[in-house]
Design a protein around this nucleic acid. Sequence first.
DNA 1: CGCATAATTGATGGTTATCAAGACCAGTGG
DNA 2: CCACTGGTCTTGATAACCATCAATTATGCG
Lengths: 248, 248
Amino acid sequence: MSVPVQSSCLVAKLSHYISLDDTQKEQLASLEKTERDYASGRDIYRSGDVAKELFVVSKGWLFSYTDLPDGRRQVVKIHHPGDIIGFPDIALSHMTTTLRTAQAVCLCPFPKSSLDTILRESPRLSALILSIALRDQVVFIDLLRAMGRMRAQEKIAYMILDLLARLRVTNTKMTDTINMPLTQGQIGDYLGLTNVYVSRTMVALEDEGYIKRTADRLQVLREDDLVAMTDFQNRYSDMDTSWFPQAD
Amino acid sequence: MSVPVQSSCLVAKLSHYISLDDTQKEQLASLEKTERDYASGRDIYRSGDVAKELFVVSKGWLFSYTDLPDGRRQVVKIHHPGDIIGFPDIALSHMTTTLRTAQAVCLCPFPKSSLDTILRESPRLSALILSIALRDQVVFIDLLRAMGRMRAQEKIAYMILDLLARLRVTNTKMTDTINMPLTQGQIGDYLGLTNVYVSRTMVALEDEGYIKRTADRLQVLREDDLVAMTDFQNRYSDMDTSWFPQAD
DNA sequence: CGCATAATTGATGGTTATCAAGACCAGTGG
DNA sequence: CCACTGGTCTTGATAACCATCAATTATGCG
């Protein structure tokens, strides 16, 4: 009843960092044994929910957000295929964000107890999961720097580079074009801007020849210049796995 | 050669979340067996350093920051006694932030390998450490919301409440007054503001009766109103430890 | 084709940055 | 003891950046 290992986004993503034996691959793939489809623009869980389910993204983009009482919204994380959703909420008893689909998606829900099993049985996978959680903190730190100290054009440049770097982990043939399902309002909620100003800024970026936009596609023309503009560091390409336990 | 357990800030902080037996307490206290003093305003490590040392804060405040090439600075974390410094950088091969003392401090450095030992030998402590890393992500998410969607007065209110909540974990007798060693410039670098605007905003908060300032002390007068202003949630008081392994 | 949603563009205003000067304070050396 | 010094905080004037409001144009979908 197991999913073919090569079909698992999660295995693909994690294999990028350490070599996995067949047992470990099976353990991970088992998290994706049930699939569920969701339409675009749906909330899957909401802030305050108790549900203790995690998800592996199989297809499509989603994002997590929180609202202020008066409706101001902050998107805190954009989720791609192969991502595990819900980690930060393990530590607390309630969900702290709302999860919304940005397009039609396919998710693999699994109970937290499945994670417990992996943590108990595989020190090597445990180390990897801890490392990913810690790496995500570094990514949050980068985002924080962008939010606190960059202006609009730099923020959008940073976001584009971050998306590129993340998508390249699983999709090695992807070069410079992103299929972008997020609206400008959602981008604004991610970067702390308004939809109007996102529009103006993207027009400016296009006028200056940094990017090219057609329909839902976004092509990066001068990636090196964007990297220089934002002092961008790719946090996804490399991880220090030297201290991991050698075997289970 | 072990430190008396009750003198350990780390044990005090972690005991707040789970009960620890004497062996576990000894393991943790052993991390603090060497102490080192640093003067105020010193950099302890810098972004890009390879050093793989972690620190337990024994006394004093510090903060971690990153700079943009043109000098814009973002403080990303404020460290208090009992905190472990350096977690996020475990996952990568180089330090991503610079650590600076905000006053005279005392730190307990320990090599990453000591952490490995704990992770191998105590599933229960491992779960706690993972939980704290994940809880820190939630804290970053809260900060992100403040950075992206709050105005200056709300940001400062949020920062004050966050500091109060964190200090109360180890210092239960602390009520409403913070001994604040950070300059307004550093506060600005934390919240994405300038020193000038921090000054104006704190004057305004004082004029409106939210806080009272004397020398380095900051007293909160209308905490409930600040909580309402920022929709503040205390992430430090509670943690879901129900899924932890019962014993080592 | 018609409708809802998203993107664009213009005009105006608010929040915060920048620049600059003065006040306060602690530490220092004469 | 007291000017001197360097840092921090405060206050004022001005400007930049982005938000808000509003109208129009695209875009996608049934």
